[in-house]
């Protein structure tokens, strides 16, 4: 058998495929020669659009919000001159109807984050450690499916559970624990139940993936060296899952502070959260937008600062434990 470098006689009827026609198409080749001729050009060709996208669409709206928060009036109208001012921020301190929901939001979100962590840690640990690998997906699915359903639908389901004629009240009355229905709805209780219902997955997933990564042999090695269950947890498992705790808490905290439909539907007058206050400025006409923008900026900065600080703290703890 002989090896030839002849590629056969290509007749006139021999058609070239799409990619062949493209890669030998003069204008295309000329264009790619200009755009992609060097690694440097390829780099800019590849990166130019992502850079523009993240600066314009990801950062842009936040900067616009910041800008509007400093204006005396917005949207622009012909009979008002808009000037830069800090008045909108000053307004925040002026009235407890603003500060109280703000503090409430922070406290509420923090407490719920902690509660979610305490509930979800054993769940994640159970899934990662005590469920057989091939069945973990099934067990996870049971938790995942409800989270694919939208916020509003889940709030509605919560309303059915907690209403005066809801399943929970019927159950309690049937058990004889109460005679009249307990008003769960429009209270801190219904709001908390709803928020946990909506955010738990964001705690579970980081915890689960952190715990799943820790080889069981670590704990076994520690046991072999004489460490009891509590010591093993405190010295091995907990430190190694700090990263998961940090990201889970950050996510849940940030999501809770930004919830709107949930407090509107499940909360009551005594549980007004800051997001409702902010939204209020956008419902009414006129130049309330700058105030709403200013309040949003305050909320955003506080939330990011708190979660940033929390992450720093966790990083510090993780660093200290590893020493």
């Amino acid at each position: 058998m002989t090896y030839t470098t002849e590629t056969g006689t290509a007749g006139k009827t021999d058609r070239t495929g799409f990619w062949g026609r493209l890669s030998t198409f003069g204008p295309y080749v000329a264009l790619t020669d200009i755009l992609l001729s060097s690694p440097r050009r390829q780099f800019w060709f590849l990166l130019a659009i992502p850079i523009l996208w993240v600066f314009i669409t990801h950062l842009g709206p936040i900067l616009q919000m910041l800008n509007v928060s400093l204006l005396s009036s917005y949207p622009p109208s012909p009979n008002k001159v808009s000037v830069y001012t800090l008045e909108n921020y000053r307004k925040f301190w002026s009235d407890s109807i603003f500060i109280t929901p703000f503090i409430r939001t922070l406290v509420f979100s923090s407490v719920l984050t902690l509660t979610t962590l305490i509930i979800m840690y054993p769940v994640a640990y159970f899934l990662a450690r005590h469920v057989r690998r091939d069945r973990q997906i099934l067990f996870l699915m049971l938790l995942l499916i409800p989270f694919w359903v939208g916020e509003v639908v889940r709030i509605f389901a919560m309303m059915i559970l907690l209403g005066n004629n809801g399943a929970l009240n019927i159950l309690l009355q049937w058990l004889g624990l109460t005679e009249r229905p307990i008003p769960f709805m429009y209270t801190g209780f219904s709001l908390s139940a709803g928020i946990i219902y909506l955010t738990a997955l964001y705690m579970l997933m980081p915890l689960y993936s952190a715990l799943e990564k820790i080889p069981a042999s670590y704990s076994e090695a520690a046991a072999d060296l004489g460490a009891g269950p509590w010591t093993r947890f405190r010295r091995i498992t907990l430190p190694l899952s700090l990263e998961g705790i940090a990201s889970g808490c950050t996510l849940v905290f940030l999501i809770s502070t930004g919830m709107y439909a949930t407090p509107v539907l499940l909360g009551g007058p005594s549980t007004t959260l800051f997001s409702e206050v902010i939204a209020g400025f956008f419902h009414v006409a006129g130049d309330q937008w700058p105030v709403g923008a200013a309040f949003s900026c305050i909320m955003l900065l506080t939330a990011l600062a708190l979660s940033g600080g929390f992450n720093k703290l966790m990083g510090f703890l993780a660093g200290r434990v590893s020493k």
Binding site: G60, P61, I62, Q64, M65, V68, Y74, T250, L251, L254, I255, T257, G258, M259, Y260, S275, I278, A279, F282, W289, G292, A293, S296, M299, L300, A303, L304
Partner: peptide, 15 residues
């Protein structure tokens, strides 16, 4: 992904 929902909605509204 990390900006609280209501704030991101408002930022988009303004933008």
């Amino acid at each position: 992904a990390i900006i609280p929902g209501v704030i991101s909605a408002i930022a988009f509204r303004i933008a």
